[in-house]
Design a protein around this nucleic acid. Structure first.
Lengths: 126, 126
DNA sequence: TGGGGTACTTACCTTTAGGTTAGTGGGGTT
DNA sequence: AACCCCACTAACCTAAAGGTAAGTACCCCA
């Protein structure tokens, strides 16, 4: 196992939620699965540009263990494995929505600042 | 600097928000400051049992740099430094509320499960 | 016959987060 | 005189997160 000292004791709910969400790709995985309902391993990999296969399996296993995703294996050749969200996973995603909005407006603010700085740099010095 | 490749480019808002919140004590710092409005360094330290001074300063500096907290230094002896939230910090805290609720109900669910397992273990085998 | 796709696992390495310890300098308390 | 408090900073170390590369076993397509 990669994560050893999981599931608390937690000081508050934020603690518990962040423990489950922190991980470089977990937010994106949640979003992908919520968006598409069901995704196969390779589809997820293509949906998260830059993720390595190791990290993707690792994160998916942790999220399965945490009760956020379900993993369904079909005894076929070539192998087929489908991932989807549990009710808890979908609820988590809903709870993340306001945070996402905050983040989006923050990005917007930063872009405005960057444009301002560009303008300032482009200004002729008096 | 400890954090080097900060502020994106981010894929989505969740990304941006998690970047700013992830850090062992940041959630708690946010909560402490929102709860009390203004806190001094030593008060925060006492409020976060187990935090080291190094991590506390580091997190506070990062959050200041990220525009979440304001740091006010009074030129007194002994030194006095006060921390409080910016509007953006307060908004972030509000956006974290649903996540906190999700986390709390998750903790509750886990405790119920643990009690169930205890009961099952205490049951006499048939 | 060679290449690509399926869903992984394993071993190894680098980077980062976080913790530990000690030091600063003046002021108040015992 | 000795110690604690304030708010830090610096040096060092460990553990964990994440990345890279290769291997597995079987199938389809050209």
């Amino acid at each position: 196992m990669t994560k050893s000292a999981r599931q608390g004791p937690y000081i508050c709910g934020i603690d518990a939620a962040l423990d489950v969400v922190s991980g470089k790709w977990k937010g994106l995985i949640l979003w992908e699965l919520d968006e598409h309902g069901i995704r196969r391993f390779a589809e997820l990999r293509r949906g998260l540009p830059g993720v390595s296969e190791k990290m993707l399996t690792q994160h998916l296993r942790e999220m399965e263990h945490d009760g956020l995703v379900v993993r369904t294996v079909y005894a076929e050749v070539p192998p087929r494995v489908e991932y989807s969200l549990t009710d808890e996973g979908r609820a988590l995603n809903a709870a993340l929505a306001p945070l996402g909005q905050w983040g989006s407006s923050r990005i917007r603010r930063q872009q405005i600042q960057m444009v301002d700085h560009q303008d300032a740099a482009a200004m002729p010095r008096p």
